[in-house]
Write a protein that binds this DNA or RNA. Structure first.
Lengths: 231, 231
DNA sequence: GGATATATTCATGTATGCAAGTAGGCTGGC
DNA sequence: GCCAGCCTACTTGCATACATGAATATATCC
C-alpha cells in the first residue's frame, strides 16, 4: 500500500536507502544505525527514523528496539508466496485483458519490448544491464495492468514486491541469458493475449514468474548468510 | 506488508486510533492533529507521529504537510480492487486446499462456525454483534489460509484490507440479516471444500465477497461526505 | 580460575523546542 | 462595501536532549 507518504528529507533518505538495499550495497544482515545514517546524509535522526519505519513496514529492515536496526535477511518462504500471489493475480488480470483487448493499444507494449531488445543488444556491463532491464520489465507489466483497468492491483503488488526485487538483483548479477529469456517470455505473453489464447498465456506466466526462483538453488547455497534459515 | 512494527506507546496509540477509524468513531474526512492526539493519550508527539505514519501507509490517514492530518475518505474504486484481489487469491488458495484437504482438520473450522452460530443467536446489540462477528469471520478465513499453507498470502491481504473493513463496518451497522448470510456462506464453503466441489466453491466465494458491495448503493448515497468523489 | 554482580556503552524510544509553510482572519486603503 | 496585503494561529517537518533497555565488558567475591 506504499504510495509516497514521505516528503522532503525523509523521502530522500528513504529512496537512497531503499536503492542501496535492493541493489545489495547494503547486504542482508548488515547493521545500520540511525545516528550513523543521519551523519552520513547530514541530517538528524528524525527523518532517518521515518525512513527506517517505512522500510521496516516493507520488510526490508528489521528494527529491534534498544538493540539495533538491520537489513533483513532474504526470506525464501516469503518470496515463494510473493510469487504465488503475483502468478495468481497476473493470470486473472491478463485473462480479463484478453476479453477486452483492443489491438490499437498494442503499440505501447511493442514499444517497451523494442527497448528491451535494444538493451540486450547494447554493450552494457552486466550490472547496468540488469538494472535497466528490470526497470523496463516493470514497465511492461505495469502497462498490461493499466490496459486491463487494474492499476490498483499493480500498486498493491508493488507494495509487497521489494523483497522479491532484491532477490532478483541477487540472482541476476551477470546473467544476460536470463534476461534474454524474460524478453522472449514477454513477446510470447503479448502474442497469446493478442490471439486470445488463455491456456498458453497461463502457462507462460507461471514459468515466467517461477523460472528464476527454481534456478536459484545453487547460488543460494553459496551465500547462506544472506538468507533466513528455513524453518 | 504490515506486521507489527511499532512497540510500546506508539503501538498502543496506533491500535487505538485504528480501531476508532475502522469503527467510524473517527469518521472519514475528520481532522485530527498530532498535538491533540498526544494530549488525549497523555504522551508526546513522537509516538503519535509514528502511529500516524503507519496509518497513512495503510491508507487510513492522509497527512498533508503543514496543513493537517485527516481520516481518509473511503475510496470505492480502491475497495472494488481489494475485493477483486481477495476473490482471485481466495479462489486460488482454496482450490489448493481442496487437493490437500484432510478431514481431520475440519474440527478447527467447525468450532469457529459454531461460535458464529452462537453469536447470531445471542442477544447482543447490533454494533457489538457486528464487531464480534467480523472478528470471527476473519478467524475463519485465516484458518483456511493456514490450512492451505498460505499464511503469508493472508497477511498480505490483511495489509490491504483496512479500507475494506472500514467500509464493511459502515454497511453492517444493525444488519443482522447480512451476517446471517455470511454464516451460511461459510458453511457452504466448508462443505464444498470437503466435497472437493471446486466450481460451486468458486461461485460461492465470488458472491460471498461481492454481495455487500453490490448491496451498498443506496447507503452510500446517504452519506456522500464519507466517500471520495468518483473520478 | 570461575561465576556472579555491576558498570559502561550503545542502540532505539520519548519528549520538546524551533523552523517552515499554509489558511484564514484582520486591518488599512480605497 | 470591497479588495489587497499583512499577520496571526495552527499545522507538520526537523533537530536535539534525555530516558530506557539490552548486550558486553569489567570488577569483585568466592
Amino acid at each position: 500500500m506504499n504510495t509516497k507518504k514521505l516528503t522532503g528529507t525523509s523521502e530522500a533518505v528513504y529512496q537512497k536507502l531503499k536503492e542501496q538495499i535492493l541493489y545489495l550495497e547494503l547486504p542482508p544482515g548488515s547493521a545500520i544505525s540511525e545516528i550513523d545514517t543521519a551523519a552520513r546524509y547530514e541530517t538528524s535522526r528524525t527523518p532517518v527514523r521515518d525512513a527506517f519505519k517505512m522500510l521496516a513496514s516493507e520488510g526490508l529492515l528489521e528494527i529491534r528496539p534498544h538493540i539495533g536496526t538491520f537489513v533483513s535477511l532474504i526470506d525464501l518462504n516469503m518470496i515463494s508466496d510473493i510469487l504465488y500471489i503475483r502468478e495468481t493475480l497476473e493470470q486473472a488480470v491478463l485473462r480479463d485483458l484478453i476479453s477486452s483487448y483492443d489491438k490499437s493499444q498494442e503499440f505501447r507494449v511493442r514499444f517497451i519490448l523494442q527497448k528491451q531488445r535494444e538493451l540486450l543488444d547494447a554493450d552494457l556491463d552486466a550490472d547496468e544491464l540488469a538494472r535497466q532491464f528490470i526497470i523496463s520489465d516493470n514497465e511492461f507489466h505495469v502497462t498490461l495492468y493499466e490496459m486491463a483497468g487494474k492499476k490498483n492491483v499493480m500498486s498493491f503488488l508493488k507494495s509487497i514486491n521489494s523483497e522479491y526485487e532484491r532477490f532478483r538483483t541477487f540472482l541476476n548479477l551477470g546473467e544476460r541469458r536470463n534476461l534474454m529469456r524474460l524478453y522472449e517470455d514477454h513477446n510470447a505473453i503479448l502474442e497469446y493475449i493478442s490471439n486470445r489464447d488463455y491456456d498458453r498465456l497461463s502457462d507462460t506466466i507461471t514459468h515466467h514468474i517461477y523460472d528464476f526462483f527454481n534456478a536459484s538453488t545453487e547460488i543460494v547455497y553459496k551465500h547462506p548468510e544472506y538468507f533466513q534459515p528455513i524453518k
